[in-house]
Amino acid sequence: MIINISKIQHFSVGDGDGIRTTVFFKGCNLRCPWCHNPENLTSSPCSMACPGKPGKEILGKYVFPGEILSELLEDKDFYEASGGGITFSGGEVMLQADGAAELGRLLKNEGVSVTIDTAGSIPYTEFEKLNTFVDEYLYDIKTADSEKYRSIGGNLSLVTDNLSRLIRDSKSVRVRIPLIPGFNTDIPSINSVGKLLSSLKITDADLIPFHRLGSSKYEALGLEYRYRDTEPLSSDELGIIEKEYSKYMKIKVEK
């Protein structure tokens, strides 16, 4: 089973525990306008002009999971020393569940832990292909408003349904909430997400504040970035949001 990836990034320190290597899967079924990995939206290869470097970098290649295994195992000593492992991110990994499962199986055989970063708007049958090989899901909840979910291409009931099934199947899940100014940071939005997660017995969540570090990628790809002029949340605003969410669960703000 072949997989379509854009990049393998060593020493990822933002996605999951310890020192990790992240495999970015190409292609996504959502279209969040704030996305900071726009190169992974489409499944077709794209070319990106890197500042300071001549020529363009082609992102996106089809590989067999076994082909990239040795590169992923290069840092095995670091995973062991730090409690880290491999993260599959994207794009939406679950769109390539068969290939991801094969890669997961290979890594499991090597004793390497696998974390999957997903937005969850995919039929649960895809999760079932992967559950055996995955140690933890980083699971995005972007809003509790089904209309808003639809506006970015997602399906709220599918997202919540999958989340409760993962919990029922005893999978380790870490819920992550992106904080997008103007989309989900007003008090009513926070409360509805809080209530939704409480009803699913979620006790912990990470808040991921909006940043614009991906804006240069839009430029390099020749795409328009609708969030280019959106200011990141101030620490005061973050404080208010954190306090509000803390009414419902234990909160960690990613920095």
């Binding site: 320190v13 310890g18 020192i19 000593d77 670091f78 020393a81 730090s82 880290g84 920095k255």
Partner: peptide
Amino acid sequence: EKRGKLLAIIRT
């Protein structure tokens, strides 16, 4: 939160 990762770099 992240210092442990540096520690793992040194140990490795």
